[in-house]
Design a protein around this nucleic acid. Sequence first.
RNA 1: GGAGGCGUGGUGUAGUUGGUUAACAUAACGCCCUGUCACGGCGUAGAUCACGGGUUCGAGCCCCGUCGCCUCCGCCA
Length: 584
Amino acid sequence: MDWTQRKSTEQLAQMAAGETVLIAGWVHRHRHHGGLVFFDVRDRSGVVQVVVRPDNRAFALAASLHPEWVVQVRAVVQHREKAAVNPKIATGHIELIPTELTVLAEALPPPVSPADEGEVDESLRLRHRYLDLRRPVMQRNLEIRHQALQTARRVLSEQGFWEVETPNLTRSTPEGARDFLVPSRLAKGRFYALPQSPQLFKQLLMVAGIERYFQVVHCFRDEDLRADRQLEFVQIDIEQSFVDRQDIMRLGEGLAVALAREVAGWAVPESFPRITYREAMDRYGSDHPDVRFGMPIVDLSERAADGCVPFLDQAVKAGERVVALHFPGSLSRKQVEELSQASAVDLAWLTVEEGQAKGSLGRFFDAESAQLWGAASGTLLIGHGVGDAFLQKVGALRLRLGREGDLIPSRRHEFVWVTDFPLLDWNAEDARWQAVHHPFTAPLDEDAPNIERHPAEVRSKQYDLVLDGHEVAGGSIRIHQREMQERIFAQIGLSAEEAAEKFQFLLEAFRYGAPPHGGIAFGFDRLVMLMAGMTTIREVIAFPLLSSGVDPLTGAPTAVAESQLRELGIAVRPPTAPGRGDLA
RNA sequence: GGAGGCGUGGUGUAGUUGGUUAACAUAACGCCCUGUCACGGCGUAGAUCACGGGUUCGAGCCCCGUCGCCUCCGCCA
């Protein structure tokens, strides 16, 4: 068989009538009219219609075809009559008259149909992912992913970045997520860890004088899964020497712009707006705000302090903030109660109807004073509380109102940088300070003196890139001086001995001349998800896991043979040890 | 670990205040059909109503528990 003759269905659209072609693919749909048989052949590029008349040698075989059979068709291209043209299909102006039809493989009726676009239970889709991936939308998603990979590699390579690979079998590191461990056979009782990111290696590459590094790298974090989180995910990891924040941010912008314009086809500006972490929290109640719609959090503490609503006045006197969201529509009392319940924010509300102040605060206001508070139109939702945790609840409420009130222009796409994150935050559970980003992030120069005395006030050289409310990239300028690194370790409760034990190799490397350096990592799956218009990253990963971490296709994770465990020197404990109080 | 939603023929769904034979679409199978393209028409077959227990004369429906899937919180430097 000479497959080089084979044409894609896409190529057929260009062909002249009368040409003989060879195509091959799957039977997409089959329409049998007794005396006339149509079937559509689907390949990666699309579908094309084949017409078979009773006088055709292939008629009997064509009549007996079934969906998803694999066929090969040698045929003459024919232009359809005007009335028969189907404008919905790229090849809708032509059809094929077979001279030879061969069944290459028969197929069982598929449990999930590649020819259907309806919703199907996801575990069933994943169990038969090879069928699910035949659907045109999934093939498009994988193509977008491919194009994004190629564009990223080209853009970075053109700017002098080298793609350097780093190990997957590496050492477990403290901080951050749970590690995936890999037992060592050669050194029984010891373990490798799969990398949560190549963070330490890319810094070593900077010490090594590579200057510009990138990698498309799989990262592993053993934490609960979400719509935008898998145990295994892909980063476009970048690091560069002799740079400051603006250099990496400009680089990240360049890459994001290239991807958005070339792959997604979006019109995005050359550079993106920047807001500080503080502004993001105060205005949107999130460090990854969706800025495609307004309805910012408004601080009404000063107004509330005038005492016209006693309980809000008291809240302000107690050191709380009074904030509001101005929803442009009307809400019922029941809806507000429901929102209050769901958001865990004690919500009051105020609106003006027929010249009268209404809502739970209506009795404290006349129409004029309600307008002063901002309730001229729509509904003012008012809550009070303290701290960023409170603002985050209000931010979640803002998002929900945005979605349910249809305030988000879903066809628009907006990048925004968030900068000046806190360097450290207090972990109440472990009663210690911890790094917000990671312990190698440099503090802002002017804040560095405060690390020991006012750790909560120290800002860092971290920057996150946010797209439509999703964090799609994050990075920082790193600490390249050993003394500063040791101060940070000390502040997060890592003793000199512990630090030496865990990061010996990095600290040692820094003694041999470390250049100033910094970098950024793009969450590739999330970025592709958004560019493909999907709502979970599973739609842009060929073989993802369910949110339980199970792969219904392979059955992973599975038990392993006792002999394998013995070889590794591992004994498995029963999954649930009976408690002391249980009757044995 | 917690909250919410869901679980009914292969697939997607309906199923009222508990009542006889669990309905519809689609896929499958058979017959008919010469211009369809989500083809159409007629017919056939296909369900332990996720699993276990309970209430009841009677449970797909009510109650309790378990399991699975999805979303969110915690967690994810």
